[in-house]
């Protein structure tokens, strides 16, 4: 059945071959639609109708939220729907700090008690509840060498890394506020501005030692603390 290979061939039989093998067009027939299909499509229509009703907001041009009163009670977000206008900064810092603490908990443990001889405790620690200046500096730049916490000696090879350097000022402030107010600790809130102040004053690239930090032991970083529990918590720092 092969034909000559020249494109200008006048072999009409071959040129029209594709046309000739076509089937004729036919008028549509009248097969009935199966019953199951009709029922299925009725179901679809009912579901579609369910999108209307209350969702239309009474067909008003001025309504974009037809369910304004919808405030789920189990919304756990601080300041989420239903929290009202007043957003407590201390509660927010505690909430965010608790998830940020996951990093610290690797060594200092979830209960804040550390591991004897290796990682010092945070719970009841004078380092934590003392001056905010020293605490921020430890977290920001790290700490190395032998130290004494709650009368016990600790010396971890390599010391504590400069974790704060990789965190935003806000995140670091949240974690430190959390640490200062958990496991029975009580301390004033540490704000983002305080962390930024310390960062701008101290640019060291090496870890601190206990002796270096002595001057800051009881110093608090100056700065406003938002009104609320974070400000009223009794400062345990020895003045």
């Amino acid at each position: 059945m092969s034909a000559p290979a020249h494109p200008d061939s006048t072999d009409l039989d071959r040129i029209h071959a594709a046309v000739k093998r076509e089937k004729a067009d036919q008028a549509p027939s009248n097969a009935p639609a199966p019953m199951w299909a009709i029922f299925l499509l009725m179901l679809v229509s009912i579901i579609a109708g369910g999108q209307l009703g209350g969702n239309t907001g009474s067909l008003s041009f001025n309504t974009s939220n037809p369910f304004p009163a919808a405030t789920p009670a189990d919304d756990v977000r601080p300041g989420g729907s239903g929290a009202g206008d007043a957003l407590d900064p201390f509660a927010l810092a505690m909430k965010k700090g608790s998830s940020g603490y996951a990093v610290c908990g690797g060594c200092h443990q979830g209960n804040g008690n550390g591991i004897p001889g290796q990682f010092p405790p945070l719970a009841g620690s004078e380092w934590v509840q003392g001056g905010t200046e020293r605490l921020i500096r430890v977290a920001q730049h790290g700490l190395v060498g032998a130290i004494t916490v709650k009368g016990q000696g600790y010396n971890t090879p390599g010391g504590m890394m400069a974790f704060g350097a990789a965190m935003s000022a806000q995140d670091l402030a949240n974690v430190l506020t959390y640490v200062r107010n958990t496991w029975g600790n009580e301390g004033t809130m540490i704000t983002k501005e305080m962390v930024e102040k310390v960062r701008s004053e101290e640019k060291r690239a090496t870890q601190w030692t206990e002796a270096d930090l002595k001057p800051f032991a009881d110093k608090n970083v100056a700065g406003d603390i938002p009104a609320g529990p974070g400000a009223t918590a009794a400062p345990a720092a020895k003045k």
Partner: peptide
């Protein structure tokens, strides 16, 4: 957007399954 515009689009988006199915 006005709620009814969204609701109509939503209902029609579902019911278009009917012609597509047919």
């Amino acid at each position: 957007l006005p709620a009814w515009m969204v609701a109509v689009g939503s209902a029609v988006g579902v019911i278009l399954l009917v012609p597509f199915g047919l």
